[in-house]
Amino acid sequence: MVKVDRINISNEGLTKFFSPIEAQIMGVLWENNEMMTAEITKMTGIPLSSVAGTLDRLVKADFAQRRVENQGKRVRYVYSATTTADNAANAITTRILDSLVDTFGAVAIENFSKYKNDK
C-alpha cells in the first residue's frame, strides 16, 4: 500500500509521504508525460521487479494511471501521473491539515495563523 496517511516527519522530501521507491517513480512520472516500465526502470535504476510492484501500488492508490499499448507483437503498459505534482501536494497537505484540525481543533488553527504571520 502507498501510505500517504503515515507521515514520517524525519524523512527528507517526498519520502515523508511515500516510500523511497514510490517517491522516485512518482518524481519520474511527474517530470515526464508518458513512460513505459522499461524507461522507468532505466531512469530510476531500480530493479524491474521492484518497479513493477510499486507501479501496481501507485495505480491502485490512484497516484498513477496506465493504459495497455499493443504495437506489433509487443504488449506494453504506458504510465502517467494522474495529477500534477502541485495538485498532489495540494491533496496531501489538505488531508494533513484536515487531520490536524480534526484532532486538535482551535489549537491547530491558531498555530496555522501564527505560522502564516511568521512567514
Binding site: T37, A38, L48, V68, R74, V75, R76, Y77
Partner: peptide
C-alpha cells in the same frame, strides 16, 4: 500484462 511486457 507485466509478463507480456518484458518477455519476447
Amino acid at each position: 500484462i507485466g509478463m507480456l511486457e518484458i518477455f519476447d
